[in-house]
Design a protein around this nucleic acid. Structure first.
Length: 217
DNA sequence: GCGACAG
DNA sequence: ATCTTGTCGC
């Protein structure tokens, strides 16, 4: 993916081309390692820091960390968000010394207007199992989710299930889980719950958020 | 024309 | 994403 798209039209064309490479299968049931990815932005200038933190699924300990500085590669446009962060995230992934078994992204996968959000995009480019855990919705509707941790409701857009609204903590606002590449929704939700023993967001996301924020300040 | 709109 | 004080609760 050399010539990075510079217009919305070009970006849409790239999504169209890459979408056909998505693979939908069960994916790893109990991966030994999972990676969290996140990006932090500076206020005034246009600088960013991208981080990937690999955790051991067994005890949630940190196995590897990679952080890089960079620039947004595209303006923020809902639905084209991946074009903004993917280059920096790939740079960070390249600097890992271990290859994680699953990528957990800060954003959506299939829960996207054209079914190709950040998690799907990164999954295809790395060919690693990948899914997204978003804090807010981009598309879709859902029925009220039970108040207890583990409760979930299908996220439906244009008549199809594109993800799940999952409660990770009792009485706390749920998160939006959606498949990206080479993993199914049940396993993505199970992993998300395994990574949220105490907080709303996965430990992977929290670790990556801290890492890139540290590099920026 | 009016809202909605990942991070 | 980032800007922000206090406040409620364990």
């Amino acid at each position: 993916m050399q010539p990075w798209p510079r217009t919305e039209e070009e970006a849409l064309a790239v999504q169209d081309a890459l979408r056909s490479r998505l693979v939908f299968d069960e994916g790893p049931a109990s991966p030994a390692t999972v990676a969290g990815l996140d990006v932090a932005y500076s206020e005034g200038d246009e600088r960013l820091a991208a981080a990937v933190v690999v955790l051991s699924t067994a005890d949630l300990s940190v196995v590897d960390t990679a952080v890089v500085r960079g620039r947004p590669a595209f303006p923020y446009v809902p639905g084209l968000f991946a074009f903004r962060e993917v280059p920096a995230l790939l740079d960070a992934l390249d600097r890992l010394t271990v290859r994680p078994e699953v990528l957990i992204c800060d954003g959506h996968g299939l829960a996207h207007p054209r079914r190709f959000g950040l998690a799907a995009h990164l999954g295809v480019l790395t060919d690693l199992p990948a899914f997204g855990v978003g804090k807010t919705r981009l598309v879709g509707d859902w029925e009220p989710v039970g108040e207890r941790r583990g409760a979930r409701s299908p996220l439906i857009d244009a008549g199809e299930t594109v993800g799940a609204v999952l409660r990770t903590q009792n009485g706390v606002k749920p998160v939006f889980v959606s498949v990206g590449h080479r993993i199914d929704l049940d396993r993505a939700c199970a992993l998300t719950l395994a990574l949220t023993p105490r907080y709303r967001l996965p430990e992977t996301t929290r670790a990556a958020d801290r890492a890139c924020r540290d590099l920026l300040s």
